[in-house]
Design a binder for these strands. Structure first.
Length: 507
RNA sequence: GGGCACCUAGCUCAGCGGUAGAGCACUCGGCUUUUAACCGAUCGGUCCUGGGUUCGAUCCCCAGGGUGCCCA
């Protein structure tokens, strides 16, 4: 990986620096301030799609601008392909026309002092060449940016995966599908906001910097506030503050924003990612299932124009009602074992081991519910390709969810699985403050027995609950993973413009 | 954290126990219908780093670094 300093000695950069100087010596500013365009590539392509080869529209003048993506230069003629935000178009550059309109040297400047990657503006008529390429037949051009560094290899493009992420701007210039991914991402987020706004949900920003972490089981990033002399955590969820807002009387709230988890990086995990959490008073987890289903269907329809699509060569269908099945039933179907029937932890662990759960995972777990969850992860998760609401989780791994109305040891919680991955997590929210305190305390003692960061209890959250949280349904959706699905991206890094990467040259 | 793979010119990659190559890019020359333009010439190397084996290592071995994929 080259750093800009290494580039100092690179011949390409030196050559371009020299061209920049030559332009300046000729009285040309290689970095002008403004340029007035009258046309974009795609608009021209559409407008003149029926223009026959060899014909020029001499009474139509237009001005375009964009980055030079290809150059084919002859003695007194040059073809430059420029790319703007809408697409590409060829500039047909004839020495005679340019000389007449500009100056005797102008064509040589174009020929000798511009490179692939430079940003140009140009004015001319429209002509489809003999070979059938729609072109702007230019008589005037302006260099809008003399670039110093070259674009990647014109045959292979930018294939180095790391460089695509580190220098996303280059990736975007060279790989048009990357642009589409981020356009779709923006659209998905817009659809979600519109969907919620239209139904009376209010978006409220809650703190990123928090004195206590909570709302999920994850390791936080720690930072320090100098003036207050205190450590603060970056939020791992927006849950606890949004519930406070429901206590305060906002009956439909949500927050769409960045979450930070100090954990591993993989094709499905980035330390900072985007979630939307939604809370609705007087609703339960069944209402959240309906909401989840509808919002995802709306996204697919809006972005892809269809409720079914192909992800990594697998057909995914959002058109049918999503399957709703309990974790217990799924395990019974896959393994023939009823996880609620074990008499003690030892029996549960022996059964789990027989089903292929690793010893190294089992030792970290100290409850039957934890074992049940491991069995589910081992035996069921990967098989849930079509959208499936997995319902009724063990209480031990769900400290913020309300106990099941009819099943002891379980809570009213679901996760949505698609393509074997979790995409959403929702509860009938636990609003009994006494039960909530007991659950959190249990969680802490369990952690303290196990490992590292035994987080404190967010006392203010308990206080809020003591003031009364109405019956509430809550939902969290991982936006990045939804974007992955709807853009057919294999890695979460493909849907985050600037994914977290190791810094270069440190250590 | 575990497994596998890769690291050679600016880029994409060959290569081989005997001191390194191609295409493209860059630079120079030629060219008025190209689409990876073409033709000719030049330039271009810490073969990831360190150690070992060897007369000799880019190649084999060990360690480290980086990257990717899979698993946790």
């Amino acid at each position: 990986m080259q750093t800009p300093h290494d580039d100092e000695t690179r011949s390409v950069r030196l050559a371009r620096m020299h061209k920049r100087e030559q332009l300046q010596q000729a009285g040309i500013d290689p970095y002008p301030y403004r340029f007035e365009r009258t046309a974009e590539a795609r608009i021209l392509q559409e407008k003149f799609q029926d223009l026959p080869a060899g014909e020029e529209v001499s009474d139509f003048s237009c001005t375009v601008a964009g980055r030079v993506m290809a150059r084919r230069v002859f003695g007194k003629l040059a073809f430059l392909d420029i790319q703007d935000a809408t697409g590409r178009i060829q500039l047909y550059c004839e020495k005679q026309r340019i000389t007449e309109a500009m100056s005797p040297e102008a064509f040589d400047h174009l020929k000798n002092l511009t490179d692939i990657g430079d940003i140009l503006g140009a004015t001319g008529t429209v002509k489809r060449t003999e070979k059938g390429e729609l072109s702007v037949y230019i008589h005037r051009f302006e260099i809008l940016n003399k670039t110093l560094l070259p674009l990647p290899d014109k045959w292979h493009g930018l294939t180095d995966v790391e460089k695509r992420y580190r220098q996303r701007y280059v990736d975007l210039i060279v790989n048009p599908e990357v642009r589409q991914t981020f356009e779709r991402r923006a659209k998905i987020i817009r659809v979600m906001r519109n969907y919620l706004d239209d139904r009376g949900f209010l978006e409220i920003d809650t703190p990123v910097l928090q004195p206590e972490v909570g709302g999920a089981d994850a390791k936080p990033f720690v930072t320090h506030h100098n003036a207050l002399g205190m450590d603060l955590y970056l939020r791992i969820a927006t849950e606890l503050h949004l519930k406070r807002l429901v206590v305060g009387g906002f009956e439909k709230v949500y927050e769409l924003g960045r979450i930070f988890r100090n954990e591993g990086i993989s094709t499905r995990h980035n330390p900072e990612f985007t979630s939307v959490e939604v809370y609705q008073a007087y609703a339960d987890y069944f209402d959240m299932m309906d909401l989840t289903e509808n919002i995802l269907r709306a996204c697919a329809l809006e972005v892809l124009g269809s409720t079914s699509f192909v992800y990594q060569e697998t057909e995914i269908d959002f058109g049918q009602p999503f399957r709703r099945v309990t974790m217990r039933t799924l395990i019974q179907e896959e393994c023939g074992v009823d996880c609620l029937s074990f008499s003690d932890l030892g029996e549960a662990k022996r059964a789990a081991q027989a089903l292929g759960v690793k010893e190294s995972d089992l030792v970290k777990v100290s409850s039957a519910g934890g074992v049940m969850n491991l069995v589910f992860e081992e035996c069921c998760e990967a098989k849930l390709i079509q959208p499936t609401f997995v319902m009724d989780y063990p209480v031990e791994i769900s400290p913020l969810a309300k106990s099941h109305r009819s099943q002891p040891d379980l809570v009213e919680r679901f996760e949505l699985f698609i393509y074997g991955r979790e995409h959403a997590n929702a509860f009938s929210e636990l609003n009994d403050p006494v039960d909530q305190r007991a659950r959190l305390e249990q969680q802490i003692s369990r952690k303290a027995a196990g490992d590292d960061e035994a987080a404190g209890i967010d006392e203010d959250f308990i206080t809020a609950l003591e003031h009364g949280l109405p019956p509430t349904g809550g939902l969290g959706i991982g936006i990045d993973r939804v974007v992955m699905l709807l853009t057919d991206a294999a890695s979460i890094r493909d849907v985050i413009a600037f994914p977290t990467l190791r810094t270069l040259g440190s250590e």
